[in-house]
């Protein structure tokens, strides 16, 4: 473990919004084959930390080092990143082609299969329920066989079967050696699968013990 390089590392990271400090002195490392839960109150900056990890915004101080190519980083937020006007399959084909994935059509069929959306492949994403849309979002994430998975409250509004599927997908990704950072509002439930718990509180990040279940 000691010799292993973390896939994602925060080194003394600080982020401000205008004049306001969101968090500072954030240090954390995510290793291959682990699931890390991230908790904190509303407005504590969980999503901002996610965006930093995804490289969508840059820190005001410190460094965020990602040792995974951007192409193998999967980011799933509350918003589904879908085009409501396009069919489910068209949505996935677009993301596959834009990311330069080899044999996009084959890969798309594969992920539709995994997420159980094969039968709805030719329906427009706009008519999907929240749960279906989030499954499609998960399918998009799987297109790139991500090594670093960033989940920003993905389970909100999902029914039991979709949740189970999400958990399965995440756990199998861990087996493959992916590092997962998972923002959760339901620590008790999600900690069954998790390895660590990080908490954003009073403008900095600390590690806490996982609640036993």
């Amino acid at each position: 473990m000691a010799a292993q390089q973390p896939l994602l590392e925060f080194q003394d990271v600080a982020k401000t919004y205008g004049q306001r400090i969101i968090f500072r002195h954030v240090n954390a490392a995510l290793f291959s084959g682990s699931i890390t839960l991230l908790a904190g109150d509303n407005g504590s900056g969980k999503s901002t930390l996610m965006r930093l990890a995804a490289g969508l915004t840059s820190p005001d101080m410190g460094r965020v080092s990602r040792r995974v190519p951007l192409a193998r980083t999967g980011y799933m937020a509350h918003a589904t990143f879908l085009y409501p006007g396009l069919e489910a399959r068209e949505n996935l084909l677009f993301w596959a082609k834009a990311s330069g994935i080899a044999e996009p059509a084959k890969k798309v069929t594969e992920v539709l299969e995994i997420t159980g959306l094969s039968r709805s492949a030719f329906e427009k994403a706009g008519v999907f329920s929240r749960g279906m849309a989030q499954r499609l979002n998960l399918a998009r994430l799987l297109l790139s066989d991500p090594l670093l998975i960033l989940l920003d409250e993905p389970a909100t509004g999902l029914d039991v079967s979709s949740r189970t599927m999400l958990e399965e997908v995440v756990c199998s990704a861990r087996k493959r050696g992916a590092a997962v950072l998972w923002i959760s509002h339901n620590i008790k439930e999600d900690s069954r699968h998790a390895d660590r718990l990080l908490v954003l509180n009073s403008h900095t990040l600390g590690e806490e013990e996982l609640p036993s279940c």
Partner: peptide, 17 residues
Amino acid sequence: AAEEAEKARLGLLMLPA
């Protein structure tokens, strides 16, 4: 506007391009 409905902009920004 197409990207704004479901924040697909963030997805575009994360493309390896």
